[in-house]
Design a protein around this nucleic acid. Structure first.
Lengths: 94, 94, 94, 94
DNA sequence: GAACTTATGTCGGTGC
DNA sequence: GCACCGACATAAGTTC
C-alpha cells in the first residue's frame, strides 16, 4: 500500500526497508505544525489583550460581542435587521 | 414584502392591513420549535449518562471515541485504522 | 489496569479470561447509542418540516434565522440590542 | 451607562456629551482586530498546505489526525492509545 | 461551498 | 484554595 500517489518519487522504498520516511508527507506536516505554532502565538496575544481590558474594567464577554458585530459586513447586519422586521410582521409580533 | 411565495394563499393580506399573521408559517415554526425542545431533552439525557459514567470512574473522552468508532461501518473503521497506521509508519511515529 | 473503579464488581475477570466484557460500560454505551438514535430521528423530523415549508414556498434559510431569534429570551435580545447601542456610542459610530 | 469602570479616566465625559469616544476601548478593540486578521491569514495558510497535500494524493482527514496526535506529549498519546484499546477490549470490539 | 452538528478549550461561578 | 460544572466560543467534520 502506498500513501497517495507518492511511490516512485524516490521518497522512500519500503520494499527494501532501507528508507521508511516519507519526506514529502513529513515536510507538509511540519509546515502545518509551524503554522499551528504561529496560530497559538496569536491566540495568546489575543487572550492577553482581553486580560488587559479586563484589568482596566471592561467586560470581556461584551467586548467579544462587539468584535463579532464589527466583523459582520454592514450589509449582513442590515439584512439581519430586515429579517427580524419581516419575521415580526409575519408572526404578528409588534 | 412577503415571506416566501405565499401571498394569495389567503393566509394574510397586508395590503388591507386586516390580517397580518401568516398562520401557515406560524404553525411550521411551532412544529420546529417543539422538535427542538425534544432535541434539547435528548441532549440533556446524553449528558446525564456521560456524567453517570464519569461518576463511576470511566473516561468520558474515550467513551465518546468509542461511540464514534462504533457508529462507523466496520470496514470503514478498519480502513481508517490502516491508513492511520500507514501514515504513522511513514513518519516514523512508533 | 482496570477501567474505572469497576474491578471487583464481578463484571469481568480478565485474569481467567473467562469474562471479558465489562457490562457496566456496555450498558452505558448502549444507553447513549439509543439516545443518539432518538436524536437522529428528531433531526430527521426537523429536516422534514423544513422540506415541507420549502415546498410551499418559504425560504428555509430565513426560517432558520427566525427560529434562532425566537429561541433567545426576549431579555437577551434586548440586552444584545443595548450592547450594540452602547458600543456604537462608545466607539463613535453613529 | 458607562462601559467598564472607566469614567474618570479622562477618556470621555458623557455627562457633558462633549467627548463620546472611549479611546481606550477603541484601541483595545483595534489591537484585537489586527490580531484576528493575522489569525485569518495563518488559517488560510494552513488550509493551503492541506489543499496542496490533497492535490498530491494525501488524505487530509488522516493528516489532521496525525497533527493532533503529534501535538500530544508522547506519554499522553501512549496512555490514550492504551485506554482506548482497553475499552475496545472490554466491549468485545476487535 | 454553505450550514448544521459535534468536539474541544476556556472562563466564570460554586461547592467542598 | 482547588476542583467540578455549566455556559460560551472556536474548530473540525459531515451533509446537502
Amino acid at each position: 500500500m502506498t500513501i497517495g500517489h507518492n511511490s516512485g518519487h524516490g521518497d522512500f522504498d519500503d520494499e527494501n526497508g532501507i528508507e521508511v520516511t516519507d519526506d514529502r508527507l513529513r515536510l507538509l506536516i511540519e509546515r502545518i505544525e509551524t503554522l499551528e505554532e504561529e496560530k497559538k502565538g496569536v491566540n495568546d496575544d489575543v487572550r492577553e489583550v482581553y486580560a488587559e481590558a479586563k484589568a482596566v474594567g471592561y467586560d470581556v464577554k461584551i467586548m467579544r460581542q462587539i468584535v463579532r458585530l464589527r466583523k459582520m459586513k454592514p450589509d449582513d447586519r442590515r439584512e439581519q435587521d430586515l429579517v427580524l422586521e419581516t419575521y415580526r410582521a409575519a408572526l404578528g409580533m409588534v
